[in-house]
Design a binder for these strands. Structure first.
Length: 481
RNA sequence: GGCGCUAUCGUCUAGGGGUUAGGACGGAAGAUUCUCAAUCUUCAAACCCGGGUUCGAUUCCCGGUAGCGCUACCA
């Protein structure tokens, strides 16, 4: 290899999804790893859409994938390229391979092959393609093609020897060539298969690292052969273990492999999702550090931290990352995301300034698990129309005398000149002493009246936040609850 | 079926020829008191099995088992 020079060390990575489905967790993680690696080493990330399966690819899926990537905050430097627009490249390559003797025309029909495979599977035969067309004399091939007979192009796999590559994660992986069949490169309709198009593109786009799911490990020797046949140097292969569902089977459409957008809709913050995803199959040098921002993720990311065994997607831990993130995130930053949730439920906050909204967000966010909480669980902090949790009312307001005392308490508050966290507490405690009841009784009841919930931040902080007028009004309604 | 890969608490994982096998999520218990889904403290919880190699294997090697992947004119 006599490659030129100076920029030879800039890594070039790619994320190459197939638009036959949405961007799911596994794909998102692969994209994330590629992104982290590229950013860590100052390399380039290329987005390439592998839409050679014309039947199953749709533009909606392409759009969905882009939306997912954007939500995750993954940006790319080149592309998206579409393989469907690069067909000539693959056809030329296939042609070259035939000419160099690395590939040959195959006239077998799909039906024929399927029948044979079914037979082999039923009996004990070898299901591999038996290379029937490999030895057809060139003149005959020419004649049949001239006569218009449809033909696919197959790669001529060496009949002995072995093929290996050194994976950056798994180490050396070797396959006996006899295990590999003469796979199709170009279908009879001149559309390339995956193996041809990836390799041709990865060479053409000068990829230095192929970072992808371990489901491709067994496919890699075929691709290695293609690189060799095409006279191109091998990139670094790094296969990443798969993400499994809670039942330890592969994530599929049926369970778990939901679109990443579903997590957005569930109120997951993208940064938290990224952090969680990054730690699925990768560990930073200091494994005790789990909560990390993008900067740290990028700084620390390296192939050496990638695990070899599959990981189970743990929803509970995702939620934990989400609440950790929200707690650490300044309320003003969270506000735009929260506003989206409000919009969804037609909630128009009564706060008159963003500062006031942010203050309230700060008050409740330590208890938030996801963004939706701000529009559901914490609704009473932003809106006067909120439901009262029946269980909470049952627990803390079942006693009529408590309700009546709360109404009386409201009147006391109404006449206070100052209305602060300290003053509201003093008023309530004095009042409870006067009535000879435990302060907790009134506090818990007031909490339900004020927030509709049995769970909330410190009551007096809530009162101060709500303000005198609202506190009084809500307390007044205690008998109606 | 064949081939490939993998195997540490329930889950994510650290570690590595001699360790009390570490951390995190989740779980349990306690503390705090004004509720907890907050906070703090404590606890339970793992080296798949069998052979080697070795003074000594959870760690290295081999076999088994299990899981996953690939085995298409899908990607």
């Amino acid at each position: 290899m006599t490659s030129n020079s100076s920029s030879a060390s800039t890594p070039r990575l790619r994320f190459a999804p197939s638009p036959t489905g949405y961007l799911h967790v596994g794909g998102a993680r692969t994209a994330l790893f590629n992104w982290l690696f590229a950013r860590h080493y100052g390399g380039a990330l290329i987005l390439r859409i592998e839409d050679t399966d014309i039947e199953r690819s749709t533009t909606e899926m392409v759009e969905g994938i882009l939306v997912g990537l954007r939500w995750l905050g993954i940006d790319w430097d080149e592309g998206p390229y579409f393989q469907s627009q690069r067909m000539d490249l693959y056809r030329d390559a296939a042609q070259r391979l035939v000419e160099s003797g690395h590939a040959y025309y195959c006239f077998c029909t799909k039906e024929e092959l399927e029948r044979r495979r079914a037979q082999a599977q039923a009996g004990s035969g070898d299901p591999q393609y038996e290379r029937k067309c490999r030895s057809i004399p060139p003149e005959q091939v020419k004649a049949r093609r001239a006569a218009g007979e449809a033909a696919a192009i197959r790669f001529a796999v060496p009949e002995s020897g072995s093929t290996f590559f050194d994976d950056a994660v798994f180490g050396r992986v070797e396959f006996a060539n006899t295990e590999l069949e003469d796979f199709v490169l170009l279908r009879s309709d001149a559309v390339p298969t995956y193996h041809l198009s990836v390799v041709v593109d990865d060479i053409d786009m000068r990829m230095t690292h192929i970072l992808r799911g371990a489901d491709h490990l067994s496919n890699t020797p075929k691709q290695v052969m293609l690189y060799q046949a095409l006279g191109a140097p091998l990139p670094v292969f790094a296969h990443v273990p798969l993400i499994l569902g809670p039942d330890k089977t592969r994530l599929s459409k049926r369970h778990g492999a939901t679109s990443v957008i579903a997590y957005k809709e569930e109120g997951i913050v993208p940064e938290a999702f990224r952090n969680f995803l990054a730690l699925l199959g990768w560990t930073p040098p200091d494994s005790s550090k789990e909560v990390m921002d993008d900067r740290q993720l990028i700084d620390l990311f390296d192939l050496s931290g990638i695990a070899k065994s599959n990981a189970v997607f743990d929803r509970g831990k995702l939620d934990w990352f989400n609440s950790e993130y929200m707690r650490a995130c300044p309320a003003v930053q969270l506000l735009p995301l929260i506003e989206e949730e409000w919009k969804k439920v037609d909630l128009i906050p009564f706060q008159t300034s963003r500062g006031a909204m942010a203050a309230t967000v700060d008050l409740v966010k330590p208890r938030a698990r996801n963004l939706k909480d701000f529009a559901t669980l914490f609704r009473a902090y932003f809106s006067d129309s909120f439901e009262v949790d029946p269980a909470a009312a049952q627990k803390f307001l079942k006693d009529d005398t408590v309700r009546e005392m709360l109404v009386e308490l409201a009147s006391r508050y109404e006449n206070e000149a100052v209305f602060s966290e300290a003053s509201t507490e003093k008023v309530l405690r004095d009042f409870s002493a006067e009535k000879n009841v435990k302060a907790g009784l009134l506090i818990n009841g007031a909490r339900v009246a004020l927030t509709g919930q049995g769970v909330a931040p410190s009551l007096f902080a809530v009162m101060a936040n709500l303000g005198q007028e609202r506190t009084v009004a809500r307390l007044h309604r205690a008998t109606e609850l």
